[in-house]
Each structure stands twice: as structure tokens, then as C-alpha cells.
Amino acid sequence: MVQIFHPGADTVARVILASIGAAPVLAVGLAYTLWRSPYATAQDVTREQPVPFSHEHHVGGLGIDCRYCHTSVEKAAFAGIPPTETCMSCHSQEWTNAPMLAPVRQSLAEGRPLIWNRVHNLPAYVYFNHAVHVAKGLGCSTCHGPVQTMKLMRQSAPLTMGWCLDCHRDPAPNLRPHEAVFDMTWKPPADQAVIGARFMEERSIKSPERLSECSICHR
């Protein structure tokens, strides 16, 4: 009688059986990890731009306020990408022959906007509004990170729904005095728990239940 199965066949069969059981679990785990990883969220991905604009230089070095360029951040959903005139407010006199800035000068001369590559891109079904976040005392750096240290812009937060909800369910630790909203180096003071709770009250910030409702961000 010829042996059909060799001595290790039992082990092979067990491994296969175990794998059949483990594969879905592992697959779900892998998908979940991948879905939240920077690979999928584009977190910390630095993007190429037509002009290598440096926030490190303009914000960190020169101390220019966010609102000098992002003029609509307090009154509109969109913070605003500055028109070429804003760049040229200084660069009509500064670095006027720099090859790096040739696209800016060309843009002004031809009246065609610079085409920047978007860094923070939310899905179309998310109706994020900058104005309300600024008005309630959420600071720029809470979501955008240490922009004043970024040579090229990168998305510092994962921007996943879970990340949004972390704050919507408990905004108090992130609430600042109004005058600190544009302070890129703000750190919560020791008594933030007390101050945050007071800001929740004073600024009539909605309850975590209301802030976690679908219609707050989705229409």
C-alpha cells in the first residue's frame, strides 16, 4: 500500500485550517490599520508646490499673522488662499529677481492664479467651516500643527472622522482665549479644565451629544 499522506500532512492540514480561521481576522485588522495609517490619510505627507512657499520662513521667521494671507478664516467656511497680489505686496520689492518666485511674477503679469496643490482635502460630504471654529476659540495649531516650523506645508492631523469626533465629543481641552487663536505656540495652561468648561458655557458651545450628530458636519 502506497502512503498517500507523508508524515507532516497532519501539521499542514492544521496550519491550513487555522489560517482559514485567522485570515478574516487578520485581513480586517490589516484593513483597519491601513485605513487609519498615514498611507491612507496622507498625514504628514509633504506636497510639492509650484512655488516652494515656506511657512517656516513667513510665519516662524518673519512672524506674519495667519490672517494676513488667509483673510476669510474668521468669516467663511474656507480660510482663503491668498491671491497673487498678496504675495506681491512684499515681493514687488523683496526678492524681485529670485528665480524661485518667477511663477508668482508670471501669475501677476498674466492675471492667472497660481495652481497650488491642496494639502488639507476633506471628502466632499464634510461641510467643515473655519469661521465657527475660530469664533468658538479653536486655534489654528490645534488642527494644523506647528505650521511655523514647516518648510513645505504638510497635513499634520489625520483628518479622519474619528479624529474630528475626539474633539466634538470633548472640546473643552482645546478651547483658547480668543486672542490666542492665532498663536501657533499656544499650550493649554495648568487649569485648562476649569477655563475650558467656562468657555463652553460663555460661548454657548453645543453639548457633546449635539456636536456628535451627523448633521453637524454632513448635509
Partner: peptide, 22 residues
């Protein structure tokens, strides 16, 4: 936010951008 880069915080016209050659 808007004026200090050139005019400076005290209005002497010595803002950071002026210090860099504006």
C-alpha cells in the same frame, strides 16, 4: 495682523519685512 510686517508694532515703520529690505 495686517500692518505690523511693515509698520511695526509701535508704528515707527520698522516692521520685520522692512528689516529684511522692504
Amino acid at each position: 495682523a495686517i500692518c505690523t510686517p511693515c509698520h511695526g508694532y509701535t508704528g515707527h515703520g520698522d516692521g520685520m519685512v522692512v528689516q529684511r529690505g522692504f
